[in-house]
Design a protein around this nucleic acid. Sequence first.
DNA 1: GACGACATTTGGTCGGACAAATAAACGCAA
DNA 2: TTGCGTTTATTTGTCCGACCAAATGTCGTC
Lengths: 244, 244
Amino acid sequence: MALNTDESIVSLGTDPANGSAVDAVVRQIRELIAEAGLKVGDNLPTERELCAQFNASRNTVREAMRILKAYGLADVRPKIGATITDNRMSRAFELFSFNTMEVSRKTFQDVQAFRDLLEVGSVEQIFNRLTDLDLDDLHRINGQLSENHDLQEASEIDFAFHVRLVSILDNAAILDVYKVMKPVILRIMQKGKTRRTFKTETFSEHEGVLEALSARDRLAFQYRLRTHLMTGFRNFNDEMEAIA
Amino acid sequence: MALNTDESIVSLGTDPANGSAVDAVVRQIRELIAEAGLKVGDNLPTERELCAQFNASRNTVREAMRILKAYGLADVRPKIGATITDNRMSRAFELFSFNTMEVSRKTFQDVQAFRDLLEVGSVEQIFNRLTDLDLDDLHRINGQLSENHDLQEASEIDFAFHVRLVSILDNAAILDVYKVMKPVILRIMQKGKTRRTFKTETFSEHEGVLEALSARDRLAFQYRLRTHLMTGFRNFNDEMEAIA
DNA sequence: GACGACATTTGGTCGGACAAATAAACGCAA
DNA sequence: TTGCGTTTATTTGTCCGACCAAATGTCGTC
């Protein structure tokens, strides 16, 4: 029987000050990467070396490595060891590839409110910057929606339409946020819809928005765009009630 | 010494068919959630129960739980157990929080425009949800700004003020975006300012915003908040020209 | 019935052990 | 010397049992 009779080794359970030991190891590994100037493709020390270096058990180090793997920052292979990667973008998509868990109601609500703020709320800047090129692009993208696509492709086109709309703002920060939220927005767009829904309702709603844009009608633009976003909300409610 | 001399217990290392045992446990937990119809807020079985259920060791289950935690699908607390959550949006944003954008003029402009959309543009929702607790908190936070702080501390308080303002919206997506942009916003806040600037001008501008909030004066709120954000922009221009 | 001491439960950590995979060293033959 | 198959050593993957600290439940006392 192996007991912890040596009090120099016996320790401490949860570190009260710094959170869990695993989090501490994650932090230290990231510091190690930063200080050593390690780049993508470089190898991390072996698990046992990290144990010694950070004075942690191998299980703790392994749990830390699981986190780094889940974040797409490390790629661990047997015998090879851990190499630094950067698959954060694809991981962001995987987060929402879980078929088992739907986007929660609160998430849905928050994201749609967010989009309302960004798209409907920026009406002034959009109309100030709007060019014919923007309108042409938007019409072209929406035109693809009327063609035959599966649900995934159709939602991608729907998303591209809204991204193109937001891109009129020429704001990199907003565009980045939109890209990060893409997986969530895609799932939201697919909620309660069929391939046919995209070809008919979504297409028409987009056309209505474009019409208002062409006519430089701010109020109509806001009304139709907000209604469009709310339509998804109605779908979400229907689907929820159908389950219940 | 405890050895695995009993071959009925001795096992198998990596499951050749399904990838790693940890991935198998992750999959089984997801199936469990789906089949049992568990919702956000529900509790998962304890680690030891999962061990028995999936015929896996506790370390394997723990590594699987680390993955779920990293994906924002579970929240594990000592003694309480694991509860199902959906913080995937936060995780998605966190994945990109490592980027240290340099604050160029364009970045500054974009971020401030973004904040204008979020803070000034959400005036209706803010006033609808506003409570006395919100006002008390905001006053308390801004009060700290009148005390003596170095530039870093002062900007942190300034940031806390705006985060508290946005938190009135009760929108996790917006709050996450704010947190991700924190480093950039902090640098923007520090631009062209001294410790004294925070104590005087920034403090007064915040007080003006709070005054409008207290009076439920939407227009004054928008005007003062926008002016406040634009003030930073003026500072930025001055500094840029001074460098040039 | 209220309150405090004790036992139980549960996640967090540790150390050790074995299995499997593979890089690296080695040996042998052409 | 060079090429190729074999052996060895290293490393990750998994499992086991144990201890700790904290939260919770239980029970006895007053």
